[in-house]
Write a protein that binds this DNA or RNA. Structure first.
Length: 743
DNA sequence: TATAAGGGATTTTTT
DNA sequence: ATCCCTTATA
């Protein structure tokens, strides 16, 4: 118990509802936190308050988020309030908490504690295999469609058996068949997918009363962030963990529920009061982020949704500037407008890092990127291919995974012929099939390749050599020596993986090598961390739950580009929302499926990211999938009152296109100056400095691997494009690494 | 068994 | 337009 002074310090600077939320006593609590209303602040202060008043020990707090980034932020900010006691708290994602619980109890469900976690791509590969096994026509149903159906079933706690009970169409019957096989194969591989982490945790808690009561005792206080994004399993999990005590604090904003398409159930937050009739509800409506104009626009748009929990955001920050709405000719003009405007703002003193551009679909970034590159404005794209999704990184991880989980057929088939060892798909299928027949693990079967029926002599030899290497590596991995980085180095080396990449000597291969070096760095960092049990399998589990090496940098002085979905939780002084056209945003598929309200919430999310300046643009014509089309401004634009925008002003001038032309970027010429009155261009970080080319265009060259060829292109960064005579191939080589010589 | 040409799809994605 | 995957071929 702390002194009153200390408690007062905790509460200082909080507004009334925030203070009420922080100090609320026992029982369920729903905090409806509007955008920018300080919900993380409330959560962390509540955590500190609970500890300070003795309502819970640090070790009795479970604070759940959806992303690692949010968990890290919460942990940091809680540490500022409670100090090192934060170490005892469970501040982590749903999946990480479940993985931790399962590492202790998965054996009760027939898994080992080294179980592998399959990410979406792993799952999809397995689904595909199961579809083949069940003779499903891949033309008729895609693995993605089937996986999403299975995932949806898992989110609703329907196992394969329950699903099969209620099929109503041929598609569902097909899914049921694949689902059954998929579950069997997952379990055989001692693997769980992301959905299983949640579902199996629920299973273990439901099935074993002693496990249940242990965790119910441990977690005296449970707090959940972004509650509007929870799905039915997560609800069940919270219900089980909070137990009789029901000290459950959930924070969220139903208007920011934008993940319904992946199973999030907005009714969790909308019906919280029915599910917990004694719940207190606190609304945080004061916004500390945006101007009143921006908030009014957001309020106006979201008001068109039905069945909401009413909420009116307000601020003391003042009215601010009107929202800039622009209609441009096409996506190129739109991009030029955005870039020109960014340059104008920068000239007026803004920093590029204050600017973000949001779009509905990733494909929209391309035109914008081209325009930014031409204008030499530095930018970063958030999302896209992530570090741990790169093939070489996944390969390296699969090698390690197979070493700790020799049952993992997925990892085995991923790397057995990577690098090429002359073990093709047929041979792999024979090995997997034989393992299936025997009910043995892939490892055991591969260790005796000669006994696999139908395996050719060459394949037997190749598999034998592969397994020789793997057995040696496994001995090393299980010898009790805990350092991961040296082991990873040995894997990359002894399996010939690095050698094969080096032999390619292409710019792409060089990039892959660098990625692998980065992975070794990640491993070294892991090796150096203190506390907790460090082991290869713990490392791998940690990796599998960190999808992104979080590439976004806030202070790099670059413009940030991302999808609206990725924008959730962020804020920028200046925001551009591009492609505000019906069919793009709201997306045509969403319109077809009647998912307009979720699109509108996405619009609400986008608008409320802006602190000071908000631009919304649309194009009259746009090329989609290579086809020209005319576009209509987004219905969401129409939902914003004209009085909040500069549309009237634009019309009053009677020359809507005039200003655009003034600030637009000339269609060509990288060094062109914007026609904005002769200001000098602010140029961002140069993207690549061309080195003096070692080779000249048209020069005849010779490469030790590809033979003779001709230089047909030179690109910045010392990249030489060569067409080789032998096979007519065009390859990009990095002159610095390539074994290239003049003839 | 490994590489080249055709065909079809194509939203968003915290883990 | 583009990417990915299947199919055809050396």
């Amino acid at each position: 118990m702390q002194t009153t002074d200390q408690l007062e310090t905790l509460l200082a600077g909080l507004n009334d509802p925030q203070r009420e939320a922080v100090t609320y006593g026992e029982g369920p609590l729903l905090i409806l936190a509007g955008a920018g209303s300080g919900k993380t602040r409330v959560l962390t202060h509540r955590i500190a308050y609970l500890v300070a008043t003795g309502a819970a020990q640090a070790g009795e707090i479970l604070a759940i988020t959806f992303t690692n980034k949010a968990a890290a932020e919460m942990r940091e900010r809680a540490e500022l309030l409670v100090g090192r006691r934060v170490r005892a708290m469970w501040v982590m994602t749903f999946h990480a908490a479940c993985a931790r619980i399962l590492r202790a109890h998965a054996d009760r469900l027939g898994y080992t504690r080294q179980f592998t976690i399959y990410d979406q791509a792993d799952s999809r590969r397995l689904i595909k295999r199961c579809m083949e096994a069940a003779n499903v026509d891949p033309k008729r149903f895609t693995p993605a469609a089937i996986h999403s159906q299975i995932s949806d079933a898992k989110n609703r706690m329907r196992d394969a058996e329950a699903y099969a009970q209620m099929v109503g169409s041929y598609f569902e019957q097909t899914v049921a068949n694949v689902y059954t096989g998929y579950e069997r194969e997952l379990h055989r591989a001692n693997a769980m997918d992301f959905d299983d982490l949640l579902g199996r945790t629920v299973n273990v808690i439901e099935l074993f009363p002693e496990v249940r009561s242990a965790y119910q005792d441990t977690f005296r206080q449970i707090l959940v962030d972004e509650y509007q994004d929870t799905n039915p399993v997560q609800y069940r999990l919270l219900e089980l963990l909070s137990g009789e005590r029901r000290n459950l604090t959930v924070v969220g904003d139903p208007d920011q529920s934008v993940y319904g398409f992946r199973g999030a159930d907005i009714t969790n937050i909308l019906s919280f009061e029915e599910q917990f009739p004694d719940a207190a509800v606190i609304r945080l409506e004061q916004n500390y982020r945006s101007t009143q104009t921006i908030l009014d626009a957001a309020n106006a748009v979201i008001a068109n949704n039905r069945g909401r929990k009413e909420k009116q955001l307000w601020t003391e920050l003042g009215e601010g500037d009107p929202i800039h709405v622009r209609e441009l000719d096409d996506e190129h003009a739109e991009a030029r407008f955005v870039v020109g405007e960014i340059q104008r703002l920068v000239d007026a003193g803004a920093s590029l890092s204050e600017v973000a551009v949001f779009y509905r679909t990733n494909a929209q970034s391309r035109v914008l990127e081209d325009t930014l590159v031409r204008a030499e404005v530095a930018y970063q794209v958030v999302g896209g291919t992530r570090f741990y999704e790169r093939a070489e990184v996944k390969d390296a991880i699969a090698y390690l995974t197979l070493l700790v989980n020799p049952q993992d057929a997925g990892s085995f088939s991923r790397i057995v012929n990577s690098p090429r060892r002359g073990i093709g798909v047929t041979s792999v299928a024979r090995i997997l099939g034989y393992a299936n027949t025997l009910g043995a693990s892939v490892w055991e079967v591969a260790a005796e390749p000669a006994s696999v029926p139908g395996l050719g002599a060459a394949a037997i030899k190749a598999v034998g050599r592969f397994m020789e290497t793997m057995v040696a590596l496994r001995e090393r991995a299980t010898s009790g020596e805990a350092s991961v980085a040296p082991l990873l180095g040995a894997v990359l080396d002894q399996t010939g993986y690095l050698e094969a990449l080096r032999a390619e000597r292409t710019i792409e291969a060089q990039g892959r090598i660098e990625n692998l070096e980065e992975l070794v760095n990640v491993a070294s960092e892991y090796d150096a961390t203190e506390g907790e049990e460090r082991s290869l399998s713990a490392f791998l589990q940690q990796l599998s739950l960190v999808a992104d090496a979080d590439t976004r940098e806030d202070d790099k002085g670059v413009v940030t580009l991302m999808t609206l979905h990725n924008a959730k939780g962020l804020e920028y002084p200046i925001v551009f929302m591009i492609g505000c056209e019906d069919g793009i945003f709201p997306h045509s598929r969403a319109i077809e499926e009647g998912a307009l309200e979720e699109e509108r919430r996405l619009c609400y999310v986008g608008i409320t990211r802006a602190q000071r300046d908000l631009y919304m643009t649309c194009a009259r014509q746009r090329t989609v999938f290579g086809a020209h089309g005319y576009a209509v401004p987004s219905r969401f634009l129409g939902e914003i009152p004209d009085s909040l925008t500069d549309r009237g002003e634009q019309q009053a001038r009677g020359r809507a296109g005039f200003r655009e032309r003034l600030t637009s970027w000339p269609a060509s010429g990288p060094a062109a100056t914007a026609e904005t009155g002769g200001q000098s261009l602010r140029v961002g970080r140069a993207r690549a400095n061309p080195e003096p080319p070692a080779f000249a265009l048209g020069e005849d060259v010779s490469d030790s691997k590809f033979g003779e060829g001709t230089v047909i292109g030179l690109e910045p960064g010392g990249i030489v494009v060569v067409r080789f005579r032998r096979d007519g191939s065009e390859r990009k080589l990095l002159s610095q690494y390539a074994h290239l010589s003049r003839r």
